[in-house]
């Protein structure tokens, strides 16, 4: 009973303030500026408690943009390993979901899910900040269950 309560409290606090880490694994920058745009006054994702962190050790959610390049694959894996569990990965943009327009390029391994497990996919080239907020909120609502 007490254990259950504790779990509930942890989940509740996690949903109320998910800290995110943004990682670019070979993106063209389009998704990155839209991700940052979500933080700035018009969209202000911080009102949902979402806070951008600089270190993977502090983050609950890893936002990955761009198709994974061969040079970045190892580093992406390392960043993911450094995060504390439970951890979630969101693939932002068409390239991160499947490789997108860069599919088949020799420097590209493919989507993010080729390297690390992905919890949510946000398609779009690039996705609008609204789509991004929607994706993160949807991910959080699955946590409730």
């Amino acid at each position: 009973m007490i254990k259950n309560l504790k779990e509930k409290a942890v989940t509740w606090s996690r949903i109320k303030s998910p800290w995110v880490l943004h990682y670019n694994s070979g993106s063209c920058n389009g998704c990155d500026i839209e991700t940052l745009d979500a933080l700035t006054p018009r969209f202000d994702i911080e009102r949902f408690g979402v806070l951008l962190k600089g270190s993977p050790r502090h983050a609950d959610v890893l936002l990955v943009t761009g198709a994974v390049t061969k040079q970045q694959a190892k580093r992406l894996r390392r960043v993911y390993d450094q995060m504390a569990a439970p951890k979630f990965v969101v693939a932002i943009g068409a390239c991160a979901c499947s490789g997108g327009v860069m599919y088949g390029c020799y420097g590209v391994l493919g989507g993010v899910d080729k390297i690390i497990p992905v919890s949510a996919y946000i398609p779009g080239c690039p996705p609008r900040p609204e789509a991004l907020i929607d994706g993160v909120v949807k991910l959080l609502s699955t946590l409730k269950k």
């Binding site: 390049t69 061969k70 040079q71 088949g104 390029c105 020799y106 420097g107």
Partner: peptide
């Protein structure tokens, strides 16, 4: 600009190599 560990004798923009081979 090639990644670490890329063989020294494979050069992507040579015409005799296709994207599939390079992958």
């Amino acid at each position: 600009p090639l990644p670490d560990g890329w063989p020294k004798d494979v050069h992507p923009l040579r015409k005799n190599l296709t994207q599939e081979e390079l992958s």
